[in-house]
Design a protein around this nucleic acid. Structure first.
Lengths: 130, 130
DNA sequence: CTGTATCCGCATAGATACTG
DNA sequence: CAGTATCTATGCGGATACAG
């Protein structure tokens, strides 16, 4: 137990330069991913869209507390990141449907490992911040 | 492909109430975890401490761009969350060593799944935000 | 119905100076 | 060596009003 951890996953165990330069930090895939979907609403949207497709107002009504601005902005970001697909149907009134791309669905799998960890350890980590 | 996603991981697939109330959202373990370690420095520290133990100034020197304030604050948060252990040795001058707790080390495993996903898909997700 | 535009409060994070 | 204290800047996120 003392000293080096022997079961660190390969991806995380690769040598880090010393000092860790800013570019290396910004380029860290995990850190980068977290900075993209680690905001207030992205996770919830990915999980919801992982269940089924939604229309815009359906999402707006379904998520208590989200503003139009934040819903639109978060969906646009997820779309730009290739995780969410936006389909416009030129009806009157117009309707827009959101769903996960294959990339977005593939994210659900590693996410579940993290989710299961979080659920298992939520009693431990649920302590309020001082 | 149309309609319901059939291979959503169990933890993520459980029924979401509609509308999703704020408390439910705040209590979402994954969202909660992301809000705790999804900040600018937490991930990097967990990964670094996953390799070996570090002293305070060692971390400060090793991570280019981090301020003392942020390093201390991030370490304290991780300690409060039970992920990092802080050991003080009353020498002169004093020395403090940081390492992962068993809980922190257990987090490295699900993290690696996410890391591998991020690495595999970094070419796709690396596009700059507009 | 599906958004955009604008304004504003608050939390996050950096810089700097100082301390046991 | 290992931090605190204080000040400030920036950006996220919410409220509201308006538009195609």
């Amino acid at each position: 137990m003392s000293g080096t951890n022997t079961h660190v996953p390969a991806v995380l165990a690769h040598e880090l330069p010393n000092p860790v330069p800013r570019d290396e930090l910004a380029a860290c895939p995990v850190n980068d991913l977290f900075r993209r979907i680690g905001d207030k609403w992205s996770m919830l949207l990915v999980i919801m869209l992982g269940k089924r497709r939604y229309r815009y107002n359906e999402l707006h009504r379904s998520i208590e507390g989200i503003s139009q601005r934040m819903l639109t902005r978060t969906l646009r970001d997820l779309e730009n990141d290739g995780l969410v697909r936006r389909e416009v149907f030129p009806t009157v009134p117009p309707s827009v449907e959101y769903s996960l791309t294959p990339l977005g669905e593939s994210l659900l799998e590693p996410l579940s490992a993290l989710a299961e960890w979080a659920v298992r350890n939520s009693p431990v980590t649920a302590a309020p911040r001082p």
